[in-house]
């Protein structure tokens, strides 16, 4: 029960209430197709959010994840179209993501540019260069079944994106909660001087955080490309804001020092189920933007109040 400390338990309660409410309102909510669709669309967000949780915990942020993800869909589709090899496509994607993560990390640590600015600049650079790379959408002309399977397939009746997410999840739960790296990330975010004076090489772990996040974007980008069956600039536009909002809703602090993967997952599920509910209840889809906005502000506000009361 260690996970369900105050914040998580409230989020969990909220989630349960949402599910109960929606299932009363529309029994379709519990249909297999609907649950699959919720989980599938949650997975791509979650995978990137694991990395973002680490970054925010260590006091950094990456605004370039959406632009990078769009770029990844283009690269993976194009490279596989040309070479006919999924492995080469993946190598190209992860090589590229590794490079971008390293650049983000080094600009942050070596040039000492605030990560909000550094990754904003990276976002502009990626957004521009993906257009330059290919203005038009790149369609799947290779038609390799395995590639479509990544995003659209099922394993034991579970959508593949969910399987991939569940495969990655334990690493991050363990990493953040049970290894020294998790402690390092959170001490660097909470008190960088204390971390440094404890012999921790802050910059190394910050770069690591950026690299991990970029690589995870690679994973999500490949899934997205497979789901859409295209690679397209702008396909993950605004993704960075959704990821950050979900992580913050999950209880990770923007000021660093406090991060929880479970909270992040709950945050994403809540946002995605609200999305889903809005469709099921035939409420105008525009509320998919409005409601999360309110929830984000409220969640952080109540978190602040609770902290004040507890000490």
């Amino acid at each position: 029960m260690k996970y369900f400390q105050t914040n998580e338990s409230i989020l969990f309660g909220l989630l349960v209430l949402l599910c109960i409410f929606l299932s009363f309102y529309n029994p379709q909510f519990y249909s297999i197709q609907n649950i699959h669709s919720i989980l599938r669309s949650s997975s791509t967000v979650m995978i990137v959010a694991f990395g973002m949780t680490i970054l925010l915990t260590s006091g950094e942020v990456d605004l370039s994840v959406g632009a990078l993800m769009s770029f990844v869909t283009v690269i993976v589709m194009d490279v596989i179209n040309i070479t006919g090899s999924i492995s080469l496509g993946l190598i190209a994607v992860f090589g590229f993501c590794l490079l971008i993560g390293l650049i983000n990390g080094l600009v942050r640590t070596v040039l000492n540019v605030n990560s909000l600015i550094a990754t904003l600049a990276m976002m502009l650079i990626l957004q521009g260069s993906v257009y330059v790379y290919s203005m038009a959408a790149i369609y799947n002309t290779h038609l390799i079944p395995l590639f479509s399977f990544i995003g659209q397939g099922f394993f034991l009746n579970i959508p593949m994106p969910v399987v991939i997410m569940l495969f990655i999840l334990p690493f991050f739960v363990v990493l953040l909660n049970y290894t020294r790296y998790g402690r390092y990330f959170s001490s660097i975010g909470s008190n960088p001087d204390a971390a440094k004076l404890s012999g921790i090489n802050n910059n190394r772990y910050k770069v690591l955080g950026f690299v991990i996040t970029s690589l995870l974007v690679g994973v999500s980008g490949v899934i997205l490309a497979s789901l859409m069956d295209t690679g397209q600039q702008g396909s993950a536009k605004g993704f960075e804001l959704i990821v950050i909002a979900a992580v913050l809703l999950g209880g990770t602090s923007f000021m660093g020092g406090k991060g929880t993967i479970i909270g992040t997952i709950l945050g994403i599920l809540i946002l995605k189920i609200i999305d889903n509910g809005i469709i099921l209840m035939r409420i105008p889809q525009e509320f998919q933007l409005i409601v999360p906005g309110f929830i984000l502000i409220l969640a952080v506000y109540f978190d602040g109040i609770r902290k004040k009361n507890s000490g």
């Binding site: 923007f254 525009e286 933007l289 906005g293 502000i297 952080v300």
Partner: peptide, 27 residues
């Protein structure tokens, strides 16, 4: 008001507001 008087970080308030206003416009 939300940032200064209720003490929610302005980055988060205005991130929320970004969603709310855009959604309202679409609506």
């Amino acid at each position: 008001y939300l940032s200064v008087y209720l003490g929610v970080s302005s980055l988060i308030v205005t991130l929320g507001m970004l969603f709310i206003l855009r959604g309202a416009v679409y609506l």
